[in-house]
Design a protein around this nucleic acid. Sequence first.
DNA 1: AGCAATCTATACCATTTAGATAGACATTGT
DNA 2: ACAATGTCTATCTAAATGGTATAGATTGCT
Lengths: 149, 149
Amino acid sequence: MTISQKCQYAIRATFELAKNFGKEPLKISYIAEEQNIPVKFLEAILAELKEAKFLTSKRGAHGGYTLKTDPAKITVLDIIKFIEGPMFFAKCISDEESERCPQYNACTFLPIWQEAQEAVSKIFKSYNFAQLVANEKENTGSSHDANCL
Amino acid sequence: MTISQKCQYAIRATFELAKNFGKEPLKISYIAEEQNIPVKFLEAILAELKEAKFLTSKRGAHGGYTLKTDPAKITVLDIIKFIEGPMFFAKCISDEESERCPQYNACTFLPIWQEAQEAVSKIFKSYNFAQLVANEKENTGSSHDANCL
DNA sequence: AGCAATCTATACCATTTAGATAGACATTGT
DNA sequence: ACAATGTCTATCTAAATGGTATAGATTGCT
């Protein structure tokens, strides 16, 4: 039930890129060190995020990753949904017919999962990365240690 | 990030027992059939729930499982926390010093996980099993098919 | 006493997921 | 040319998930 390490890494990497939005690309190795993420694992994560069009990359000397979109338009929900999938508590609450169980409209527990899904989505959507960067500067807070799941 | 099959089973088994609260014990095999749960898997789950003092059991002929507590005093949160553990989004939001990451007080993301944890806990806590049983009777809703994660 | 219906305990196993590593390769700036 | 970077493919281990098998202990009934 916890958010996976991978997803935390993705969020922290996005955060790091958000801090540098509009400037030069960041190297994988830099982000990895800054956020304490295994380099090779981060490679895979960034490649995925790139497929989702959150990022662009540039190869070769002075290459690296850059945030493609304004950090203010990327929410924590966006990253979580992309990495963890869209459904938080039960797949059967999906809008998609194929994911639903046969009892969809009659299941006793479905409304509970739906209510929880909506509540959490709303919260995660309310945090965008521009905000988070601003927060950090204000509070001299840090996300430096990524091993806190 | 979804609730495990096991936890769903635990909830559905508790629900079934709540329906029969104050009456004779229910056999594992009956609950298993009623909620479409593999018998042997259910055995293990009920044994765990018994350790948590939610249930009592009686061996031998005409034996079975009985809810120990008034269903009105058992919430969905109780079952989920027992099966899935107390933390929903990140372990590091725990009150326990040992679970926390070194950055506890300074982590940029912690407040997000905390907010989500509180919201979800509140929702799951608001559903008790007496209520759910009553709901089902009212709506002729069903939880019959347990394979809807 | 004896038997059948139950729960109990222990061990096992297959599949998936999480988390991570290694090495060769392609691209770019200088 | 060459060094610095991202990209791709393959592998690996550990843990969790979901489930099965078998033998045993207890109880109620006759």
